[in-house]
Structure formats: C-alpha cells, structure tokens
Design a protein around this nucleic acid. Sequence first.
DNA 1: CAACTAACATACCAACTAGTATGTATGTTA
DNA 2: TAACATACATACTAGTTGGTATGTTAGTTG
Lengths: 222, 222
Amino acid sequence: MLVAHKNGKRKVGRFRDAERTRERLVQAAAREIYRAGFQSASLETILATTGVTKGALYYHFDSKEALGYAVVDEVIGPDVRLAWVRPLLTDKDPIDALIGAVRNIPVQPVIVRGGCALNNLAQEMSPLHAGFRKRLETAFNAWREAVASILRRGQAEGSVRRDVKPDDAAGLLIAMVEGYGSLAKNAQDPKVMKAGIRNIVGWLESLRSLRSLPSRGNHKRG
Amino acid sequence: MLVAHKNGKRKVGRFRDAERTRERLVQAAAREIYRAGFQSASLETILATTGVTKGALYYHFDSKEALGYAVVDEVIGPDVRLAWVRPLLTDKDPIDALIGAVRNIPVQPVIVRGGCALNNLAQEMSPLHAGFRKRLETAFNAWREAVASILRRGQAEGSVRRDVKPDDAAGLLIAMVEGYGSLAKNAQDPKVMKAGIRNIVGWLESLRSLRSLPSRGNHKRG
DNA sequence: CAACTAACATACCAACTAGTATGTATGTTA
DNA sequence: TAACATACATACTAGTTGGTATGTTAGTTG
C-alpha cells in the first residue's frame, strides 16, 4: 500500500525484492562458473550458496544457459570494460595509460590461481557453443578496440612509433596478457604473473617513438 | 602356442592384444577430453567410440583420473616435445629455429577451433586438481627450457642480443603462442592465428643481435 | 587335462544433473 | 472483496555420471 509506487520500480510482488534475488543468482553463478567452468557448474551449488530455491531460479531464468548469458553480459563484460576500456579513455600519454592498465592486472594469489574469467569461459565454451562464443567475442573486441584506439592516438600525437600497427599490437598485447595469465594459472603462482607484467611493460616501452623518448625521463619505473 | 613368446611382449591374454585396447582408450580419451574438457568428458562416450566395454576400461585404469593422467603423459606431453623440444635440438641459427617452430604451429581450422590441448587442460584443471597441474606444468617447463636453452646458445654464439633474458623471453614466447591460441579459438578463425604467428615471428626477429643482422640477408620471409 | 590368470563383458547402483509440475503466499487492481 | 499476477517453494522426474560386483572365455602353465 504505502510501498506501492515508491522508488521508480514498476515490478511488484512478494515480501522480498525480486531484482535482488536475480542479482544474487547472477553473482553466485559467476563465482561458481569461475570456479568450475560453465558445464561443471552445478545449479544446486548456486542455489545452496544463495539460499534461493529452484522455483525462483527458473522464474528468473529460462535455463542454465540463460543464467550463463547473464553472467557474461552483466558481470564479465562490464568487468572487462572497467579494467581495459574505461582506463584507456584518458588524455594521458597512451603508452603510460597502457602500462597503467597492465600494472593494474590483479596479482592476488586467489585471482592468479583462478585465472581470467573472460578467458576461462571463452576457452571452455567457444568451440562448443556459438551463443557464448559471440558474447565473449564482443568483450574481446571491445578490449582490442580500446587498445588499438589509444595507440592510434599515440601515433597521431607522435608518441608511438609509426611502424606499429595498432590492431596488430592490440592483439599482441591481449595475447600476452591472456597467455601469461594461463601460465600463471597453471603454475598457481603470482610470481609468474608479476614477471609477465614486467615483460609486457618492457614491450610496451619499446613502442614509444624515438622522438618521444629523450624528452621524457619520468617513467614510473623501467 | 606359436605366438607364445613372439615379439618381446611378456603380457599374454585373450584373442585381442591388450596393449592395443589400452592405447585405443587413451587415444579416444584424448579426443574426448580435447573436445569437452576433462570434467565433461564422458566415459560412456569414450566407450561408445572405441567399442570397448566398461569392464575393459576399469581393467586397464583405476579411475577416470588415471585415464586422464595417461592422456597427459602419453599424448599431450609427447606432442609438446615433438613440436617444441625436438625441433630446437638443432645446430641451426637459434632465431631461425624458433621461427621455424612458430611457423609450424598448426593453422588448420579444426585445430585452431579446438585450441592447444596442453593449454585447454591446464586452464581447466590447474586450479582444481594438483595431480593434473603438476603433470601439465612439467610439459610447460620442458617447453620453456627448450626455448631458453637455444636462446642461451644464440647469445653465446653472438646471434642473439645480449640484453635478452633467455628465461623471460622463453616465457614471453610461450605466453604469446598460448595467448594467440586463445584468441583464435574464441574467434574460431585461423586468420587470427596466422596473424599471431606473423607478429610472434616479428618479435623473434627483434631478438637478433645487431652484429648478426647485416651479415644475413637470407631470412625465409620478413 | 586341470588349475589358474589375463582380459575382458554384462548388469547394476547410488549420486547427481537440468528441468518441470504444481502449490502457495503476497501484494495489486477493478 | 473478488480476481489476478508476481515471486517464489516443494516435490518430483528422466537421464546421465563414475564406479562396482559378478560373470565368462581364451590362453598359459604345471
């Protein structure tokens, strides 16, 4: 009654907020999929960890697949944009910005051991399921385009070498990041990732134009 | 009777050769694990494709895990050595040898779409199962050591830049290879892998010492 | 020939899977 | 207040999973 049309929500219902239930399911599914992969992720586990019942789950999602799509669209995709797209929408020196993003790669043991959620799911599902593949490809493309775009700006401004092909370099950067992520995940050791970050940063430094090099001595660390 | 102690085999048995049955299981398991991952690989599928029965499977292997170990030790490990260790045990110029190995990465659609068997399994199992992780790490280490070793020789001979750290460069090479493999698998497109190979080759060229560059104009292709 | 073993084959099982059918409490709406 | 929709809860099912218990047969060995 009193709560009827409070706070813009159209949806009404029972005692608890339905949006919250859905969101909790998506978050729990993201964790379980991250842990075990999509195929091995158990709905029962997701329900047990959330306390949500199967009826509620299938009220919000048509299938396990639909829940997986929500994880990609609402968790993994946004996370990629947060780590690799937004930080590159900046006025800073392009190479500095890229180095910053690379240095921002998480190296906490629990994350290194679990790997990159985007890569994990892409590796598992791309050959098996076109729906997942396309959604994940969208995230990869946004990532690559963000990197390529800032490299193009660097070339226009003269701080990035002319012989660098932005699209190729962007792909190579992503390959390095995901590749080192794989090695570190296999080793289960943050040191591997830290060494990888140093090497990637070294490679990024090599993309600076010769003109831009002498004028700037204030790189955070070689 | 006649066949009693023919050809060094000690094991005897029924009408069919038991070693063959075991080998067929391992090969079929390798294919099924490559297709679906270890957790989702179905023993029933493996049995169906081989025509072997469950009794025979559990005569040769104690568990699904034991069958998986056999796949790593007898298929994936040897394949890595064949592609990345043996070709680098050569007298050829180190960078040329590495470029040759990179150019030898398979780019057939079916393989690009399926990805690297070593990486697939490592990604899936490393955080979940220490037994798999260690066995796969052995393969990665052999790979990295083979690359680092030939780079060290290159430095000793003067054809590889002094400032290259062989272990770091070897890790970076593997990260690039696996990273591009991941991107190509997600894209399900051999063109991505081919572009990756070109970029990796370009990076390898950059490892040549300045001394060695002018004297050699006979690289296969830039 | 008899005892024995390697190499299976068949039938079965408990646990778990995604998914469904049905019931129900709570709030809105006419 | 009666009809109705939302947002669940409970109980169930058919199928699949890895694994096991128990036969069976061909070939070796004494």
